[in-house]
């Protein structure tokens, strides 16, 4: 099991992102939200969010996902945090194994 520790900056980013996500996704609400901070494939510090929805049909469409990612970018910019948030959606089964890799603690 791997645990990735979050810095204070990561925790502030996580808090603001969680508020934006819970505001945007209300019916139904996400079952769980995992956060992680690590580099992307360009080697840039980035933020990763894994949102578990009750069923696959509740996953937002592409335009709605873009709007939510845009809202996350805006919220992060208000913290002077210029990391890009990559957001993955899935039903519980999609992230079952991810649950074994503890993230965002």
């Amino acid at each position: 099991m791997t645990t990735q520790l979050m810095s204070n900056r990561d925790q502030r980013a996580r808090d603001v992102m969680e508020a934006v996500i819970r505001d945007a996704l209300q019916s139904p609400a996400p079952e769980s939200i995992y956060f992680s901070a690590h580099d992307n494939h360009s080697g840039e510090p980035s933020l990763y969010v894994y949102i578990t929805m009750p069923e696959e049909r509740f996953i937002p469409d592409i335009e709605a996902r873009n709007r939510l990612s845009g809202a996350l970018l805006t919220a992060l910019q208000s913290l002077d945090d210029d990391r890009f948030p990559y957001v993955y959606y899935g039903p519980r089964e999609a992230f079952q194994q991810l649950g074994q890799i503890r993230v965002g603690e």
Binding site: S36, N40, H41, S42, Y88, L98, Q100
Partner: peptide, 24 residues
Amino acid sequence: ELQDIRQWADYSVTPHPDDLIART
């Protein structure tokens, strides 16, 4: 998002663009 996936597609040897998902 497309720029990052392109970076992975062209240069990375990991099986998935997200490291945590690749580890599963």
